[in-house]
Structure formats: structure tokens, C-alpha cells
Nucleic acid binder design. Sequence first.
DNA 1: GACCTCATTGAGCATATTGTCCACTCATTT
DNA 2: AAATGAGTGGACAATATGCTCAATGAGGTC
Lengths: 173, 173
Amino acid sequence: MLNEVRSGWGILCTMTIDPLDARLVELLAGEPRLGVLECSRRLNVARGTVQARLDRMVARGVITGFGPEVDPGALGYDVTAFVTLEIRQVSGHEPVADQLAAIPEVLEVHTITGSGDMLARVVARSNADLQRVIDQIVDVRGVVRTSSVIALDTPVPYRVLPLVAEVPRQPPH
Amino acid sequence: MLNEVRSGWGILCTMTIDPLDARLVELLAGEPRLGVLECSRRLNVARGTVQARLDRMVARGVITGFGPEVDPGALGYDVTAFVTLEIRQVSGHEPVADQLAAIPEVLEVHTITGSGDMLARVVARSNADLQRVIDQIVDVRGVVRTSSVIALDTPVPYRVLPLVAEVPRQPPH
DNA sequence: GACCTCATTGAGCATATTGTCCACTCATTT
DNA sequence: AAATGAGTGGACAATATGCTCAATGAGGTC
């Protein structure tokens, strides 16, 4: 139905987003609880177009959700740390990841290049509380050693908008 | 107006969220474009209550937004890397952070414990493209050296829900 | 006990939005 | 020339929203 797209860049290829998509995402990022109708007015397009673009981006996985973004800091979790895990090679990543996923304070886990390592982003209520969380991580079967760095400040909070603004200017290569 | 709250845990303190707030966040996380009225039906509370809870959480900064979550991967940025920056002590963090913020592929920057270091999360279209991004980072004035690890897989994608579910069970200490 | 504050409820009302049709245009593809 | 798909503009009923109001109940204070 909407697997491949020809409008826009001419060449038939796996399209990402076009300038209108980008404007729509930017608009919604700025005032997220805008309705479809209001968006169409701001962008000077028909309501159905906005509807279609949104549906398409969701279907394609460009937009993964509209969920409420919760700030762990406001919940009392003021400490953020990045924990590098050295794991036992034999056991594989999955069982370790599964156990890490069971710890609420573990917000994110990546497997990374290097000697069987993983990188986890964790939060805690305080530095003392961080020790508790790290202890839980060390207790995970398969974890050999951990080393953590604490995030003191976050001069650039997570964002995707600059990327969204950039993409439509760089037609798929 | 709603600076301090006494309902719930009895003790007067900086409250975070209560079980109803948590249920509301979970509900919206699951089906984000639900309306207020629909939420009130699902949670068996009055519409005004949902309205009030949402407003309160937004006002308190617990909910920082409802923006569309964009997947860099779907935009063609399949490579994620964590870059540790060693920066020149003299210049300070801010000018470096400002320049990093100007690079769209830099999604996030933290200052971390250690010898004047920063940690940046970057994405790129390919490993070759990552080189281009890292070159841009190295070119930033004040950056002495970088070392990067590539995220091969993400067994636990970023999430906050487990935390949200946990908080109301653990009254502020 | 009397009083007060505040979250919550349930109701009502005018307005705005949604979901879903339709016919039409336009550019591109075949 | 015909077909395709995106976009438009309009219409419709059904629904949701913002807003107000009075009443209730729980928790505090005096």
C-alpha cells in the first residue's frame, strides 16, 4: 500500500521523510497536544493530509509513539549514571539483559563493541542509592565487573529534532 | 496553589506521584493519543480528575512533554555510538557543549565524573558516516581526544515505565 | 465539635474536533 | 491515453473539549 514512494525525490527508493513530515514533527514536538485539525491549519494543508502523514510515519516506524515523557529527576531520581558491564562471554548477552530489564532503575541497555561488554544507563535517588542499584547489577548472573561514570550535568538533553530538520534536506543517498 | 501536597502519604513533603498518577501515565504510554474523557472512563474517575492530574504532572515537570518520539533508525541513522570526550580543562564545558549541540547527529551530551570528560550519544547513517560525525566532534575547539564505542544492539530500549510503576509504592523517604 | 481547605464528583452547555464519506484536481507512471 | 496516488475542500453525525457550577467526602486546624 505505501511501501515505496515516488513523490518527492524522483528516484524510487526507501523514503524517509520529506519537508512536510519534518514540519509536522517539529510542530507537534513544540505543541504536542495539538489536534490534527489545528496542525493542518498551521501547516496550511488539508486535514486529511496531516492525518495521512501521521499515519504513514507511525506505520513506517518513524514515529514510535506519543507517550508522555517522564522526567526521572522529577520523580526523585536525581542521579544518572552510565554503567559499563563486563560480562562472562560464555553465557551470552540475553540472559543478562533480561535480568537487567527487571531492575526499574535500569533505563536502557546496549551491547557495545569491545570485549563482551554492555552499557547501561541507570538512575538512582542519590549517590548512596546508586550503590544499591549497582549492587543489584553486580548480582546479575554473568556480570563479571562494572565500572560507572556519573552524569554531573546534561548540557544537551536527548533530542531528535535537529536530525528531523536535517533529513529532508539530504535525500536518501 | 499546588506547591505542597498532604493527601496521600500523610507527611507533608515534596510529593512525586501517587498510584493514580502512575496508572494514568501507564495508560497514556500504552495508548498515547487517548483523550482525557477516554482516560477517565478507563480509570473509573471523573474527567476533571484526569484533567487535573495531567495538568499537575506537567506543571511539576514530572511529564516533560507528549511530543512524537522519532526513531533515528527509521530515518536512516542506523548506527548509534557513545563518544567519550576528553576536553581541555581551561576552556570549560559550556563552549564545547554549545558546539556539540550544533551537530544534529549529537543526540545527547553529559558531563561526567573523571578528568574533565563528557559523554555524547551520537548517531550516523553508517560506520563510514560515523567517522564523519566523529571528525566533526574532534574539530570542536576544546576537544582534546575522543574514544567511542558503537552500540551493536539495544536489548533494553529507553524506558521509564518500570520506574513510574515503582515510585508510588515507595513513599518519599 | 465546628470549621476550613482541597481533591473529587457529576452534571450541563456551547463550541470544536474527530472519523468518515465523497468528488475533484494535479503530477507522475505505465 | 489511462491509471495511480497524493492532496484538496466540503459535508455529515458522533464525539470530545473547555468551562462552569454545586455537592460530597477526607484531612487537616481551631
